[in-house]
């Protein structure tokens, strides 16, 4: 009796405490974000079935799948044996690994692709900028061709003038040379002439002097002089 009372008391004391605990646990489970409620989980599994969104077709898929499997097994089209266990194990493992790896790999691969894309994009932008800069720098020198052509024409003209000037210089030099030579000839001729005249005068004087010394000539001169004086007197010039 005593034991029954003790047991009842214990049950009574345990009941109110146990109930809130269970309720709390259920609430916590329902509110937890990592564990979705069973209804959501069930609808997720149903949605994963391969057919359209209609519930009737989903049910049809399940029934068809189960029926086909049952037929395959019963008709010995597919024999259940230990390899089935391996197949199931491998399928579960691969599905688990795929689920585990898919997202991190996708993130990593996308990051890698983005990095390469960024490198390519930045290099393209750099290249475009470089080409633009080059176009701008070339644009600044757009008058270079006409300017160079003008300078070339000028230099050509200068060279032509220089050559003409050189020709003229040569001509002047030649003329001055000729003039100098001719002058020297003239001087020489003049000197030769002067010396000839001097010689001539000297020879004339010598001849006159020598002729004067001759008495016959002196008499003749004197006779001529007397004749001239007589003539003058006769003409009454004196």
């Amino acid at each position: 009796m005593a034991s029954r009372i003790v047991v009842n008391t214990l049950r009574a004391s345990a009941r109110p405490r146990a109930l809130p605990t269970v309720t709390r646990a259920v609430n916590a489970r329902a509110m937890s974000s990592s564990n979705p409620p069973p209804s959501e989980r069930a609808s997720e599994i149903i949605n994963n079935l391969p057919s359209s969104q209609n519930l009737v077709t989903k049910t049809g898929t399940v029934i068809l799948g189960t029926g086909l499997l049952a037929t395959a097994i019963s008709q010995e089209l597919y024999v259940l044996n230990e390899e089935t266990v391996v197949a199931a194990g491998t399928f579960i493992l691969l599905a688990f690994l795929a689920k585990l790896i898919r997202e991190p790999y996708k993130e990593w691969a996308d990051g890698h692709i983005q990095r390469i894309w960024g490198v390519l994009e930045s290099s393209r932008a750099e290249h475009t900028q470089t080409v633009k800069d080059r176009i701008n720098s070339v644009e600044q020198m757009k008058d270079v061709v006409s300017l160079t052509e003008g300078l070339f024409a000028l230099s050509k003209e200068t060279a032509k003038l220089e050559s003409e000037a050189f020709v003229q210089q040569q001509k002047v030099a030649l003329a001055s040379e000729v003039k100098a030579v001719l002058d020297s000839w003239v001087r020489f001729e003049q000197q030769a002439k002067e010396s000839e005249q001097t010689e001539l005068a000297k020879s004339v004087i010598d001849k006159v002097l020598s002729s004067i010394k001759d008495e016959k000539t002196q008499k003749e001169i004197l006779a001529n002089a007397v004749a001239e004086v007589e003539q003058l007197v006769k003409n009454k010039a004196i």
Partner: peptide, 10 residues
């Protein structure tokens, strides 16, 4: 292609 795919990265 110059930009890799997820297969080519692997």
């Amino acid at each position: 292609k110059l930009l890799p795919s997820k297969w080519s990265i692997a």
